[in-house]
Structure formats: C-alpha cells, structure tokens
Design a protein around this nucleic acid. Structure first.
Lengths: 396, 396
DNA sequence: CTACTTTCTCCACTCACAGGACAAAGACGG
DNA sequence: CCGTCTTTGTCCTGTGAGTGGAGAAAGTAG
C-alpha cells in the first residue's frame, strides 16, 4: 500500500495537523478558534490538506443548535512505529496518527549483540504487529537507543553500553528497511517526550525526567523542547560523582551515582546481602531464580523485607542527592521519575523527595512536584511516535 | 532632552537595529546582504527607522568601485545605563547604542542596606556619569542583582544574601526614578550575557558561565538565550552539596560548595591558615590589613606562597567536581569562569580543568573549552546594557 | 412557517513583498 | 573629456497571502 507521501506545505498546515493529533477530531469552526486565522484562510488550508489525504472529513457531528459541522480528523489509516531499545529488552508499538497505542510488544534482547542483530529482531516484531492487522504499513518510525545520539543524523556516538553501535547510521539503515522516514533519539529523551505528550508532564514547560533502569539518565525539557546538549550527551547523569573518592565504578572513576544505584547496582547489592545472610527473603529468591534482579528487590520490599527496603532507601537517598543538585541548578517545574525501577514505587520516591526537599534551595523546591511517570513502558514508544510525528508534521 | 520614544514596529526593524548594534555602521546594501529582504522592502523599513530617529544616515562611505553608500548607524546620542549590583560593590556604566562602554564607575557598597539606600547611591553614580558629559539622559537601563529575580516583573524573590530586597519592585521603582525603561536580571545571567555579547562566548550556543565572587552562581545559556528556570533561580549552584555530610554551611545544610569555596570562604580559610602560622606571607598581610580577602590570597599565590596556592587548588578542586557534574548533565559547548576571583587565574583554572576532564564523560569533555572570562568587571554592565537593548530593540 | 443560530463558502479588497527597470554616482581606461 | 562598467539606491508594478463581510446551507425552537 502507498503510505503517507505528503507533508504540510506551510506552518499553518503543520499547526492544524498537530492540533488534530493532540486534540482529536474537530470541526473547521473549532479549529478556527484555536489557530487565529480567518475562516476563509482556514478553509483553504483544510481543503489543501484534504487533497493531500493527510486529513479526512468523515460524517457530520451532532448539531449544537445550528448547522451540523463536518468532522475533520487525521487520516485513519496513518500508522507510526515506536521503538524503544533498552539495554536488555525492546519495546515496539504501533500508533495511529493521534499517537494512541494500538499494539505493543516487549521482548528480551541484548543490545550488545549489535545493530544488525537487534534490527532483525525489531523488524520481525514490526512485521508481527503488521500481520495482526493493526497496520498495512508505516508512515514513519521513531527509535530510542540507550546512549548519546548525534540527533540530526540519527547516529549513536560513543555509547558506553553499546560499543558496537558507535557511528552506525541507525536512521538511514532503518529508513531503508522500513521504507519510511525515521528519527532517532536517546531513550531517556523519548521517555520525557512521552510523558510530556500523554503523561504527567502534559502541562510542564521546563522539567526533568529521570529514568532509572539498567543505568540512570535524565531527559531535559526546556520550554517544551528536549534539550540534547552540544554533542547529544546532555542528561547523562549516571556517572556524576555522588560520593567523592567513593566506590569504584565500571567507568574507571570512583563514586559515580551508578555505582550506588541503578537496576544493575541494586541487583548486585541484593545478591551480596542475600549471600551474607542479611535477608531470608532475598536469599530465598536467589536460590529459586539463580540470580536477583531489581524486580526481586521490589517484590521483597513489597513483602516487607527490611533489607530490601533499606537498599531501596539508600539508593533513593544517593539518587536524591544528585537530583537535588540538578534541581538547584536547573530549577525545573516538575521532576518525573521513571524507568524499570518504577516498581520500587513510593519507597524510592519518598527517599528521593526527602533528599531533594532537604538539600535544594527553598525557592527551587517551593512548588516542585516530584512524581512517578504514569505511562510506564509505554512512555518510550509514545515518545518515539511523537518524535517522528513532530518531524512529519513540520513544513517540508 | 527628549529620549528615545520609538520602538521598532516589526521584526524586520528589530532585526536591523540589532544588526547595526552588533555589527556597527553599515550601508543599505550591506544590510540587505544580511537580512534576506528585497532592497525595496529594506529601503522602506530603513526609511521608517530614519523617521523615528532610531537610526541616522550620516555621510558617505568611501567608494568601493561604484556609487558611494550612505553610512547607516544607530542614533549616536542613544545611551544605555548598565548597573551591576554585587554583594559588596556596585558597577555603573554608560554605553552607546552599540553597547560600547563610554564610562564605568565602581564603588564599594553593602547590598544589605536595602534597595532604597543602594538606589540612592546608584542614582548618584549615574548622575556623575551624566555630569561628566557622557550622556544627556538614558534611553534604557539594565540592572543586575545578586539573587533570583522574577524576570517578567523585575522583582527579586527570596534572595538569600539581600533579604531586604524580597519583593521590592526594582524595575518599576528604577524606571520611575530614571524616567526610562528598565530590565532586571540576576547578576550571573548578566555576566553570561556580557561574555556572550562581547567576550569569550561570542560564538557559543549552549554554555555555562560560572561566577565566583562573594558567592558562586552559574549562568545557563541554551540556544543563545539565558535560561532562568521556573522560578528564576536556575544556576544557583552555591549550595549544591559538594561533600555529603561535609562542613556546615551558613544555609543550614552541610557540605555546600560555598562552604568550601567562594570569595568569602577563601578569605576565611586564609585567615585561619595565617593564624595557625602556616604561612608567613598571609600572616604578614593579615597584620598589615587587619583582615584578609580573596585578593590577598591571589597576591600571596602570585608571590609563590605555598599555602595560598594550596587553598586555591583545593577550592578549585571542589568547584571543579561540582562543575564536572553540571557538564555531564548539561553538555555545554563552553564553560566560562569569571567573577571576583578571576584574579586567582590559572592556578584556579587548572584545578577546575583537571577535575572536569577527569570526572565528566569523555563525549561531553571531548572538545570542551574551559576558559576565564575576558571582560572582567565589565561583563556585568555590558550584559545589563545588552539586556535592555534587546528589550528595546524588539517589536513594541 | 418564521426567527434565530451555527457552519461553511465565496468574493472583493488590503497589504506585504519580490523583482525588475532605472536613476544616481563613482572608478577607470582610452 | 567621454564612454563603459560597477555599485548603490529608488521607483513601480505584479503576485499571492490573508482579512472581513455577505450570504448560502443546514440545523433548532417556537
């Protein structure tokens, strides 16, 4: 099937497409109220968009006391692919033009196997979603990778946990394979984008989105736009020094945040605690599973295990100390905590909150919500879909 | 005398005014090359600006092989007032429309005496500059204050070191007194603005400007625009925790950066060292002056005093550790070090560089210059003039 | 059937702007 | 001194985006 070929011809059309994406179907009159254009001009632009097939006018809305309006909506067959590549698993989802998730698959994977193997798996997952009848094809795809990206070109640069990806032209390669436009970004930035589009950060202008998974990263949003830094590594807070001359870290330095807290560090510390006989609960799980993960610690904590709770609290304290510094520096209007460890829930959140409210400036924390993300694993894929849709809904 | 009453009527005019401000006098043809407007349209806008008196056409430039061009320049009698209020002194300067400093006065002052007393002094200093013939009046004034500011209203909010200023309508009050438009910002932001306009940061898009004076602050520039945060306290890094559970700080917490390094901390540590007999050089100066300042430490260090050098190095290390964290987080393209302690020079810079290059991510530090500001005490007043000129050279 | 409301279309008019023709003013060679 | 070339600046007309009003279309309420 022939996919979306047209792009908005001007900023008015782009504006209209985004309104329809974010606000759902609308009449011409309602659109007119939002865009500050004369009805005549609006009608012209809508007509042109109808010609391109990007939007359709289907059926009439109920009357509101006068002539019934035509329902204008984005083409119902538009489909975006959202891909969120983590360190140990992939999420792939299909959305419609309104970025509603129609289907979502998660599979384990090892990012270190390199781009070729990973993309093979991603394409198979995409094919599976297609086969299930959710899409006839994709009009665009957004990809998140767990490392810094040279954004304009969509190429990972010097990613620590996925060395085989350095310099691999992700955007170009996937665009070729999928036959549609592709945009690539850091997974943390996409989580922030997702929470901004459909989650807790909907009304926030400047906010931070801390993702605690295998590692720790932070999405930075300034004035509604993701800030990526000079070389695309902004938000890479996992190796900020939390304790001067502290624990050795895998990166070669000492005292990095990730040496104290992250999915990996938590699993390691829990294993150690179990082996030292500090917690029967954890030892039990270790024996059953052969190894411990962050999820095990979460479960143990939920069961009331004191050691697990201590580990979470201590990690939260360290993380909170670092976030406190970032809050003083950046003065955000909101801090979102997300990622794989969200399962640790309110114990973690409480520890982080305590540190931030205690250490940051009162003026910066005065009215600062610190909350868990509300989209969970969907945040990344929604953010990815939003990324490509923002790109496609821009003047060509 | 009647001052500047007009404002640019549209973005084209604003653009032209800024070009003339930043690039100096120009012909219509040269302007046309820079603004991507047709000559006809350009001629119209220039004509209108000439009518308002914001620009003047004086004399003809030398021929470049054809008809001689008219020199277009900003009205030569335009004057901006730049005020930089520090903790212990004020800088006041007059600039022309091109933001060149025509006269600059510095006087000691205590910001804790409150806005009324301070403004009396500032107005006297402005009158002095006026009396010396540098200005017949001011077309606008920019003011920097050492604390957070609610920017749109120009009102300090909860400033720690100047409690008497909390909520004082600085912008409105000064605008009334001076009879011209006034803009207010944090002094650190203005230093960043100054270095961006006329200093080392001229070509930087995203950069940090760390000001080490009585306290420590950091100006954040994102995409060429100062980032102020949600409540105007962004960049307030003095009370970021450098050492968990470290030295007690005046703010009530422990281990704050300012407890380890700042003009005040350095003076205190030097006094202590002198009293403990660790340094003859410092003891000497203490006896002579009755007290020690950061400048004394700088002088002692310049004379080769080991204790002074150690103090600077140690402070630089602590500061560098904090900056390293910010560099990982923000991934700037440049870090500028400035403020009163610039006199500590390369000993300080070397310590900071060492820490940053050692602790931050290689990708973030790969091509990251860390340099001293080049404008010294003029940075703040130039930034202040730039602030008000940006405001006035915007469409009304 | 009339009065009123809301939605949408059509049309004439305005205005910003581009782009070319052209005038002004000088350099330079003969 | 004169023609030719170059650069600068002005004038004028055509075009296309956009506005705003008139009015048609399609309803509801009485």
């Amino acid at each position: 099937m022939r996919r979306m070929t047209a792009r908005p011809a001007n900023t008015h059309q782009a504006r209209l497409l985004r309104l329809l994406r974010d606000g759902g179907p609308n009449s011409r009159a309602q659109l007119g109220d939002q865009v500050d254009l004369s009805r005549s001009k609006l009608a012209v632009e809508v007509e042109r968009l109808l010609e391109t097939g990007l939007i359709v006018a289907d059926g009439l809305a109920a009357s509101r006391g006068g002539r019934r309006s035509h329902n204008i909506r984005l083409a119902p067959n538009l489909r975006f692919l959202g891909v969120d590549i983590g360190a140990t698993s992939v999420d792939v989802a299909v959305t419609n033009a309104e970025l509603e998730v129609l289907g979502h698959i998660n599979q384990p994977m090892d990012v270190r196997e390199g781009p070729v193997a990973v993309f093979e798996q991603v394409l198979a997952m995409a094919a599976k979603l297609k086969a299930s009848g959710l899409a006839e094809g994709f009009d665009g795809a957004g990809i998140g990778v767990p490392g810094p990206v040279r954004f304009p070109e969509g190429i990972p640069v010097a990613p620590p946990i996925m060395p085989g990806w350095d310099g691999f032209p992700v955007r170009e390669a996937l665009s070729q394979e999928l036959g549609c436009p592709v945009m690539v970004d850091n997974d943390v930035n996409l989580m922030a984008t997702g929470e901004q589009h459909a989650g807790v950060a909907r009304s926030a202008g400047d906010f931070l989105c801390v993702k605690i998974g295998t590692g720790i990263g932070c999405g930075i949003v300034v004035g509604g736009e993701v800030y990526r830094g000079t070389t695309g590594s902004a938000g890479d807070i996992g190796h900020i020094v939390a304790v001067p001359d502290g624990r050795p870290c895998a990166c070669g330095n000492r005292g990095c945040l990730e040496a104290y807290f992250s999915g990996a560090a938590l699993a390691r510390d829990a294993t150690e605690a179990a082996q030292q006989g500090l917690s029967a609960e954890l030892a039990n799980r270790l024996e059953t599973n052969g190894s411990l993960s962050a999820a095990d610690v979460a479960a143990a904590a939920a069961a009331g295990d004191a050691t697990a709770l201590d580990l979470i609290r201590e990690g939260g304290n360290r993380t909170g100390q670092v976030i406190a510094g970032l809050v003083s520096f950046f003065n955000p209007g909101l801090v979102v905590i997300g990622g794989g460890v969200t399962g640790l829930g309110h114990t973690l959140l409480a520890a982080i909150r305590t540190q931030v409210y205690r250490q940051s400036l009162p003026l910066a924390t005065g009215n600062l919500p610190i909350v868990l993300g509300e989209l969970g694993p969907a945040a990344g894929v929604i953010g990815a879909a939003r990324l490509i849709s923002d790109h496609l809904f821009s003047p060509a």
